[in-house]
Design a protein around this nucleic acid. Structure first.
Length: 848
DNA sequence: CGTACTAGTCTTTTT
DNA sequence: GACTAGTACG
């Protein structure tokens, strides 16, 4: 019995087909990694393929690492010469050898998003582009999309005839590329684009890699963009032994250029391709799979397939709707806690998935309270944190002084009294002489304009030169510690009263540990190599499954992972599917969201829980959301029937076990100020959104007139806010002109569902009056709110002399409440931090 | 040159 | 609510 006998018929077929183009359509959990690793083993063992000739490409380092590990396990001898890596690091490796062939120095630096943004800013200033009109963000994404499609600045320009806006973008694109090149730098997209460029302009280089990579495999093929596809196509064009594995139903990266046609049209580009479908799922129970199938079948743009499993039905899928997001978080935390206590699950068996990173905060707070260990994947990338970037900038400067951005970043960190004026003078000199910024620093004596202020530069240059000298005999760890020590970086943090100084110091400690780990795993660890590896790390890469912790992450980050217990939080229209996609003109936008839902559901092996909240705070404003359409796409019989369920008669209306219905939700939303969510320093929703706004009244509410109802909780008490009036008028007007985006909120108008028919609520003359002018009688629907807010004359639920609690400052006594122009100014004597004066709306004070 | 405050933006997702 | 860039002031 060989290892290949454990494969099913389809899998075996995929493993044995090693010659020619192969498209493996691998459904979620169908064992594609297994197929890939066995396929590699088969090539080497049975077909005598030289491991040296095999290339396997993935998207993340984590995936590459896992594949490497599994290949090592089954291949044994020779596996180390198989090239397993990500698109980006593959390209870096190639470019490190040949970048000089296309006009770069082989020691080019890699810019991250932050760096790119700085360059864009610089370019805009130089070209006098108004960044109010052309946002850096949108410029960046326009340039990035162009690169994803392999459109050069010149080509871009050709397509801008008659379009002034586009011409501007073209200009910026051209100048941006020029600047990158001048700095000998490439951004993420360039790594792919420049490699393609290299292959196209240097046939000898291409040929050498074609000879090297006779067998190519690409994982997560549905996520490739045009540039990546072209790269693979070029490499494979000689021997045509290209095997791509993917699942069009899991294509969720359109926003960063993934071209779903790469997988849908594979057979057009490679007509002789063999197509193999893997439809047997080994991961999930039948119920979970059925739910996933029922959701994804609503998409039009897909290859038909049907996942099946031999596993039993399993538990029903749990669904729970809560009044608030606090209660949702509370439930998830306590449910996991319960499972752990009952021995049903370990922490590491559980994952909580959500649509947006911001949703993690509430969950985290609750997890801390319940004492449940967790890890959050994503958010701000570890290596993008300020303190880490600072240390890295030092290391980059030491490694090679060519990275001007890095040098400028740290020249005055910690403070050395070197300001913008000095920096500009040095930069001018560098530009005039065509040298790098750091080289100009070293020749500062020659810079006449510097004058006396130049003295301040000396210690910096001396320090860097000293580091460089030490680098010769220091280990990486010693060097990093020396940098931290000599610069006084941590010392400064310790002395600062910065609230998150401790976090920053911890991060730096963690960074040192990472350096040590790197040195341990790399025989001759060089600074350059370390910096390079660090530049290409994704968040998910750092996830360590050995830790017994619950994992919190976005649905995107969860792709490729599996867990026995999965919670999908925030299953609400407006959150997931996101507001953007619901209101989008592009009907395929919602399909991408649905694929995301499919990915989420299929992460679960045994137990899936869907949760949502009627009300949650988004960006400081309270939103009321309906249950996600994706939940409604799951057949009722698959859902836990002890919970509120949809009545089939009318699918536009949710009717719950307690008889309450969705359409009455304005009254139905119970505004409890006690109970569930009040326990945490967080205030109850009514008061936390008190005055939310510099009058953002109705901004995010759906359909003006009624929107008033939704946001009243926030705006009513803020009578003073209305005093200003202007904002109210503005946002209300906006609502009218832009129409109510959420068809779901059309109050029983029955248009829930497809985002086409937008029902615009009609406003009466009375409703058109500013809210406050209508008098309290029109607040009938929201009386609960007033009570909930403890509607005293000030609208605050505390008064002078009361003891209150603040989220950050702890407990204290209110010594004064003064009516300010906008809001009440509250003065509190805190027990630990002394007196603070703050605005009531933002202070989040809670009476004790 | 550095700080402290203000106004504006944002959030959908990230290699 | 959080963050950031820009500005005014010391």
């Amino acid at each position: 019995m060989s290892i290949y006998d454990t494969l099913n018929a389809r899998q075996k077929e995929a493993v044995l087909q090693i010659n020619g183009p192969v498209l493996i359509l691998a459904g979620a959990g169908s064992g594609k990694t297994r197929v890939l690793t066995h396929r590699i083993a088969y090539m080497i063992e049975k077909e005598g393929v030289n491991p040296w000739n095999i290339l396997a490409i993935t998207f993340t380092n984590k995936a590459a690492g896992e594949m490497r590990e599994r290949v090592d396990d089954i291949v044994g001898f020779g596996s180390e010469s198989i090239w397993v890596s990500t698109f980006h690091s593959t390209c870096v490796r190639i470019l490190r050898r040949y970048a000089d062939r296309i006009g770069y120095d082989n020691s080019f630096t890699i810019y991250d998003t932050d760096d790119s943004k700085n360059i864009i800013k610089e370019v805009c200033k130089r070209l006098q582009v108004d960044t109010k009109l052309y946002k850096e963000r949108s410029l960046m994404s326009a340039i990035s999309s162009a690169k994803d499609e392999l459109i050069s600045p010149t080509e871009f320009e050709l397509n801008t005839i008659g379009d002034f806006g586009k011409r501007k973008i073209a200009e910026v694109y051209r100048e941006y590329q020029k600047t990158l090149k001048k700095n000998n730098a490439m951004d993420f997209d360039d790594l792919i684009v420049k490699t393609v460029e290299l292959f196209k302009s240097c046939p000898d280089v291409l040929n050498s890699y074609q000879e090297r990579f006779k067998y190519i495999m690409v994982d997560e093929y549905q996520d490739t963009n045009t540039a990546q596809f072209e790269l693979v196509r070029l490499l494979a064009s000689k021997y045509r032994n290209l095997c791509v594995v993917g699942d069009d139903d899991q294509s969720i990266y359109k926003f960063r250029g993934a071209n779903i046609n790469n997988i849908l049209d594979f057979e057009k580009v490679f007509p002789e391709a063999k197509v193999i479908k893997l439809e047997q799922n080994y991961r999930s129970t039948q119920n979970i799979l059925s739910a996933a199938n029922n959701v994804i079948r609503n998409n039009m743009e897909r290859k038909e397939k049907a996942l099946w499993t031999e596993k039993g039905e399993g538990d029903q899928i749990h669904f729970r709707q809560f009044d608030t997001a606090y209660e949702e978080a509370e439930f998830i935390a306590s449910d996991i806690g319960k499972k752990k206590r009952n021995g049903l699950a370990d922490y590491k068996d559980c994952a909580v998935l959500y649509r947006t990173n911001a949703q993690s905060r509430l969950l985290e707070e609750r997890f801390i309270m319940e004492g449940i260990p967790y890890d959050v994947v994503g958010g701000v990338n570890f290596y993008s944190r300020k303190e880490i970037k600072d240390i890295l900038a030092y290391l980059k400067t030491i490694d090679n002084g060519k990275d001007d951005l890095a040098v400028k970043r740290i020249i005055n960190v910690p403070r050395r009294g070197i300001g913008a004026a000095t920096i500009n003078k040095v930069q001018d000199y560098a530009d005039e002489n065509g040298i790098s910024f750091y080289d100009a620093l070293r020749r500062k004596e020659e810079i006449a304009s510097l004058g006396r202020s130049g003295v301040k530069l000396d210690p910096f240059v001396t320090m860097i030169q000293a580091f460089r000298a030490k680098m010769e005999y220091f280990s990486l760890e010693e060097l990093v510690n020396d940098v931290i020590e000599t610069t006084g970086y941590v010392k400064e943090l310790k002395e600062s009263d910065d609230e998150d100084a401790d976090d920053r110091i911890n991060n730096i400690d963690e960074f040192v540990s990472k350096v040590v780990a790197y040195e341990e795993s790399h025989e001759e660890a060089s600074l350059s190599e370390f910096l390079e590896e660090v530049a290409l790390v994704a968040d998910i890469d750092g996830v360590d499954s050995d830790n017994n912790k619950v994992l919190l992450m976005t649905l995107h980050s969860a792709k490729g992972l599996e867990f026995p217990f999965v919670y999908l939080a925030g299953m609400e229209d407006g959150i997931f599917p996101s507001y953007m996609t619901i209101t989008s003109d592009d009907p395929t936008a919602i399909e991408e969201e649905r694929r995301l839902a499919y990915v989420g559901i299929t992460r679960a092996k045994e137990d899936l829980t869907l949760t949502c909240a009627r009300m949650r705070m988004i960006r400081g404003e309270t939103q009321y959301n309906m249950v996600s359409r994706f939940v409604k796409e799951i057949p009722e019989k698959l859902l836990d029937n002890s919970l509120p369920v949809v009545k089939k008669k009318d699918k536009d209306e949710f009717v719950y076990a307690d008889g309450s219905a969705e359409k009455n939700r304005f009254q139905a939303v119970p505004f409890k100020t006690t109970g569930g969510f009040s326990g945490f320093g967080q205030t109850a929703p009514g008061s936390s959104s008190f005055g939310a706004g510099k009058g953002s009244f109705g901004k995010n509410s759906f359909g003006s007139g009624f929107g008033a109802g939704t946001n009243t909780g926030s705006s009513f008490g803020a009578g003073n806010t209305f005093g200003s009036g202007s904002n109210f008028g503005r946002s209300a007007k906006k609502e009218e002109t832009e129409a109510a985006p959420f068809t779901g909120y059309s109050y029983g108008a029955g248009s829930y569902g497809r985002p086409r028919a937008v029902v615009k609520p009609k406003r009466t003359a009375e409703e058109n009056k500013p809210f406050i002018a209508r008098g309290l009688s029109s607040l009938d629907g929201v009386q609960g709110l007033q009570k909930g807010m403890g509607n005293s004359p000030t609208g605050l639920d505390y008064k002078e002399g009361d003891r209150v609690r603040h989220l950050k400052y702890g407990e204290g006594t209110v010594s004064a409440i003064v009516e300010g122009p906008r809001d009440y100014q509250v003065t509190v004597q805190f027990d630990s931090v002394g007196q603070k004066i703050m605005y009531a709306a933002f202070a989040k004070l809670k009476k004790i």
